[in-house]
Write a protein that binds this DNA or RNA. Structure first.
Lengths: 209, 209
DNA sequence: TTAATTTAAACAAACGTTTAATTAACTTTT
DNA sequence: AAAAGTTAATTAAACGTTTGTTTAAATTAA
């Protein structure tokens, strides 16, 4: 699928609204208003509201994997450095595309829309395969210990980042950080999270139980 | 609010449907059908669909905190044992009330329904206060190190458990565990997760950076 | 008798999608 | 280069459903 300017306009308007109010909570009319196009254009371009969501998933998924692949292929870094880069990559991914990841988190909670579930499944499988290669490489070089449960490790990575980023507002209030601007707060969280996860992963990958 | 048999029937029907298809994706008529009551009974008892959701939150939140408090007050355990009990407590909570926690996860993704956001906020604050006491106690006794970031630690606990439990289907397929029955799979995940998190928390609480 | 529960029917509003008419953009023909 | 022809883009209006909620009558319980 090619992405004309109008199509992207609509997808990005939908992305914001779906993130804010959920798929079923967002009327197609609101998407059209936000994108500044006529209501009928959505059916005209995408066929239906659901296919618009699918298009958005494909649109966002395309770029995601590529970045990760190029990062993990960098030969000049040790395996632990690559893992650390992976952690920062996930934090950035969630922080810079919060809307999309809120939508994806919601979609993972049910198995309603099958085409999208399949997309997520493929996505996850491919990501995990890449990480697995990275871990195996580190084990071969003797940097990492044996018997690492990769799905559990990924659950901690994605779960921690996702939970913290999507519940920022709670975190902000509970820790009395309301005085920080959005940007300051983002940097604050990124720094904390990065350090925390790198510490955890060092334990997971190198400390014997 | 008192919970008559009919009210509970309706709330639990709603809980399942909301978890499966989201709040906005669930027609009130479907809830009435599933609960085996007349459509009008929902407005009669709860006032509206949204107030039904609020009632469900209050219904589930009431019991949750109490269990945790009694657990943490047990004087016969070391602080690390209590932390380990806390981990198992959270795993059980998510595994036994998956429907409710899916709904809560979704509600945390937006700030649409304010009454519920406030409920979750209070809930989280109180939970974190209890955990904070536990950590302080362990630090006083010299069991735990200083400078523990409790919100980050909780994000890893809740994030990891929540992510794994709500994406079980992905986990099952990626790891070729389709042959396991639902119960076997539940036990499998609980064991793995429990061990993984206890290992992580030992690192967080006792290893110097 | 009175109050609480339950019902089927009705309500207006909102929903996703389609229609048919109009405008814009591009191609081909002269 | 202008006119005619053709496809694509855009529009306002309408479509039939589905939505959450209310009503007013009927049934049950106290």
């Amino acid at each position: 699928m090619e992405y004309s300017e109008k199509k992207v306009q609509i997808m990005e308007a939908a992305e914001q609204l779906f993130a804010e109010k959920s798929f079923d909570g967002t009327p197609v009319r609101d998407i059209a208003d936000k994108a500044g196009v006529n209501l009928a254009m959505i059916s005209y371009y995408f066929g239906s509201k659901e296919k618009l969501l699918e298009a958005l998933f494909n649109y966002r998924a395309e770029t995601g994997i590529l970045k990760m692949e190029s990062m993990l292929l960098d030969k000049s870094q040790t395996s632990l450095q690559k893992v650390n880069a992976l952690i920062d990559f996930y934090i950035d991914k969630f922080q810079n595309q919060t809307c999309f990841h809120k939508i994806m988190s919601r979609e993972q909670l049910h198995n309603q829309r099958n085409e999208i579930a399949v997309l997520i499944q493929q996505f996850k499988k491919r990501n995990q395969e890449l990480v697995k290669q990275l871990i195996l490489e580190g084990q071969k070089k003797g940097e990492f210990k044996k018997n690492i449960d990769i799905p559990l490790m990924m659950a901690t990575l994605i779960g921690t980042v996702s939970h913290l980023v999507t519940t920022q507002h709670f975190y902000k209030e509970i820790n009395n950080l309301q005085s920080l601007s959005d940007d300051e707060f983002k940097i604050h969280i990124k720094k904390k999270l990065s350090h925390h996860l790198k510490f955890l992963f060092k334990a997971i990958l190198t400390h014997e139980a």
